[in-house]
Amino acid sequence: MRSTSSVLLFVLTLTSIVALILAFLQNGLKSKHDFNEAMYSKKATIAAVANHLDVEDFSKISEAEVTEIFDKQIKQMVLKSDGTVATPEELQDAGVRGGLAENLDLKKENKKSVEERYLPLYEFTKSDGNKYYIVYARGKGLWDEIWGNIALESDVNTIAGVSFDHKAETPGLGAEIKDNKAWVRQFIGKKLYDNDGTFRAIDVKKGGAKDPYHEVDAISGATITGDGITDMLLEDLVAYEPYLKTIKG
C-alpha cells in the first residue's frame, strides 16, 4: 500500500497529461470537425435535387463539387413565417453566423412556435436555367428526431425530390427513410396542393398509396416513423406558404 498523497499525485499527473493531450487533439481537429458537420448538412440539402445536378453518381460526390454547387447554383435565404425575408440585422441579433441559412440552428428553431421560426430556403438553379426551391421540415420519429429537405419545382407545388435523415431510427425499419432510395423516389412528382388549392402535403399511407398525388406507400414495420413524416410535412411546410405564394405570383 502506498501513501494517500503519492496515490493522489499519480492520479493528478495522469489526469493532467491526459487532459492536455486531448485538448491539443481537440483544438487541432476542431476546424475539420466543423467543416465535416457543415459539409454533411450541405450534402443532405442538395441530395433533395440529386437528379438535377451535373454529377453522374450522387453517392460519390466530392466535397469540392458540393462546395462548388453551393457557391454557383444555390442562393440561400432565411425566411420569416409572414413570408418576408429576414434582414441581416435581424439574423445577427438572432446569432446566426453570416446571416446564412446553413448556419441556422434548425433544432432550436423547430422548438419555437411556427410563427416565430426562422426558416431556411435554398433556391437551386439547374444548369438549364430551371429553378427549384428546397425547404426544410423537422419532426419526431419513433425513437428520436427525424428531418428532411424537400425540393419543389418552380410551380412550388410539385415535389422534385426529397432527402430524409434521422437521429436514432431502427436500422432496417425506420432508418429506411434515409437508406432506401427506392422509397424516397416515390415522393418525386407528388403535389403539396390539391386542385382546389388546399394544402394537403403528402401522406405516408399504411396499406398502400391510392391517391396518385398526395400519398406514398409506408415502409412495413415502420408505421410510426412514417406517421412522423406525414405530420412533419403537414405542420412544418405550412410556414413557407406565405413566401411561396409570392413566387407563384
Binding site: V18, L25, Q26, L29
Partner: peptide, 18 residues
C-alpha cells in the same frame, strides 16, 4: 487510459471518417 484512447478514436473519426 481506455477512455482517453477511445476519445482519441472519436476525435479522429469525427475528423476523417465523418
Amino acid at each position: 487510459i481506455i477512455a482517453t484512447l477511445v476519445t482519441v478514436v472519436e476525435l479522429v473519426l469525427k475528423a476523417y471518417a465523418f
